[in-house]
Design a binder for these strands. Sequence first.
DNA 1: ATTAGCACTCACTTGCGTTGAGTGCTAAAG
DNA 2: CTTTAGCACTCAACGCAAGTGAGTGCTAAT
Lengths: 345, 345
Amino acid sequence: MGAPLNDRSQNILEAIVEDYIRTAEPIGSRAITKRHAFDLSPATVRNVMADLEEMGFLVSPHTSAGRIPTEKGYQYYVESLLQVNDLPAEFRNSLEEGSRFDGKSMENVMQEVGNLLSGISRYTGLVMAPRFNSTVFRQIEFVRLSKGRLLVIFVSESGLVQNKVIEPGIDFSHRDLETITNYLNHRLPGMTIAQVRERIAVELREEQSRLNKLQKQALELSDQALQGDVAEQVYVAGTSHMLEQPEFTSPDSMMKIMRTLESKQQLIDLLDCSQTARGVQIFIGSQSAHSEIEGCSLIAAPFSGNKGAVGTLGVIGPIRMNYSQVIPIVDFTASLVSRILDRES
Amino acid sequence: MGAPLNDRSQNILEAIVEDYIRTAEPIGSRAITKRHAFDLSPATVRNVMADLEEMGFLVSPHTSAGRIPTEKGYQYYVESLLQVNDLPAEFRNSLEEGSRFDGKSMENVMQEVGNLLSGISRYTGLVMAPRFNSTVFRQIEFVRLSKGRLLVIFVSESGLVQNKVIEPGIDFSHRDLETITNYLNHRLPGMTIAQVRERIAVELREEQSRLNKLQKQALELSDQALQGDVAEQVYVAGTSHMLEQPEFTSPDSMMKIMRTLESKQQLIDLLDCSQTARGVQIFIGSQSAHSEIEGCSLIAAPFSGNKGAVGTLGVIGPIRMNYSQVIPIVDFTASLVSRILDRES
DNA sequence: ATTAGCACTCACTTGCGTTGAGTGCTAAAG
DNA sequence: CTTTAGCACTCAACGCAAGTGAGTGCTAAT
């Protein structure tokens, strides 16, 4: 699908896409010649537009309206025509300002980053915290809540904290717990949670005989503590910006979009795609997979500390999204968050 | 404003409110006589309705429409006419089912409870976790993240966990931290966070001379750790149910309501009102304070463990809300959560 | 006190003509 | 061969008028 477009067609396509992104209204041939100083008559532009339509870059909603870009049109625009703006200094500042983390927990930081993403882009901001299972274990603590009920707290290298309540069969004493905690905290750091689990399984199987009772209990306990994948954390911010978009003015589409943004799982699936990739990724319309988010595009980028904790953040908005503005925002924010995670180690 | 309403007027008012809650459409005199077996002609009902309108319980949107309840009408209905249904067993079951907390953190439980509230009521569920400052301190842990950067983890009696990153001036060694942790964990449990802070301030002021260096550092460190109120946590679930309500079909009102539900602070203010009260509280329309939530009612109840941690949960929906169904849901859920918090101790 | 009857009101719907932005086609001009 | 001017055509959107019907308030009869 190379680029069988000559310069003039490209210019016109670019003009249409950009005007449409601004106005959200079908662009007519006259409007083009007026707004941009091509030395062409509307009729010529019409011919070019007819060609672009035939090639699948444009459609007209009805005979007597202007043209709007198709998904393919946007894709071509993003891949070949778009020039990304620099991130304005004010945005850069408020991002750096807002992500100071002194006195905040990592969760707060993630939430705050989501708010910043949405506030600056004026679309909806998404942040998916690193999957806990892939983060590097740093420390574990047990708190005895009541008879037989324990609170387990994990801390990862990157400063993420997770906790859960478990009910092991045995009622450990304060002393036991302390010993177990020490034992585990000396042996486990440096591995990912996944590796830790594997290690525990191996030791329980193969070294049974060489372990004393408490060591065995320690392993069994941490096995239970690590059981069950911890659900991903997604922070969504600025959902109401979505409703401000003219493409979602109908009550129906408003409900649809809000339902989608409410279902964390769908968002996780979406963001997972760009987990592994490097740098900013752009999913335009139905490119964003199986997903139910019709009419939306996603600009996402992974972030990661040097200890391997990988999360994803991004901005979701209508296909008619201001790509040139949002891309640098996402890009910069991702590296910012990476920097924050790194600083922890 | 006593009750200058005779039985017949009451019955008719009740019928109108309940029919309107069901249909969301103005109720006419004929509809009343048809749907309910009062032995009255439409004309009589009309007379009564005119009286009720004069008294401020009803209004008609325009001359040739039926009547709808005013806020005052709802208030009278809720206070004097409403009979609360029992909570259907299926709801009770799914609530009890869903709030099993084994393997979940308290935050997960709160979130889950929000989901249940909204899922069952089909309105929007709110849960405000206990303010951390008012919870009883149980344990503190320090994790050294990097040079000069500490992660502090607090655990409250009720199993709530909070963490934050701080940067004390000094770079404590692992050993120091252990000592400090032990020192604090022996002295502080049993007090609320607020009390702890006070105590620390007093000791630092009055017992300066009697403390060794590490003890002093311990106190200073925990002072910093406790500084700054931790933001309240509000869990909001099922916001899209709001958009399903016929009163919010216009794009404008949809945006308005979503913006409100997005701003945690407004919700906190709202829920704070019922923090101190006992049992289910009902805020109808503008009763729900200064707040911007026009056209909404809130049904809320505080929950609390025996250790004093107090939170609030509730359901928010249109004024035309199914009070008789939602009240028992909120009531039961609040006591359920209280039970969960209690069980921890 | 209640009810039947009746004139009246007014949001809502339907249909119809007008408007205007925009198109595609054709034929002339460069 | 490309570009442009001209023109007939299309069709969503807007506004207006008439018709419809649910519901009311008032009056007079029961």
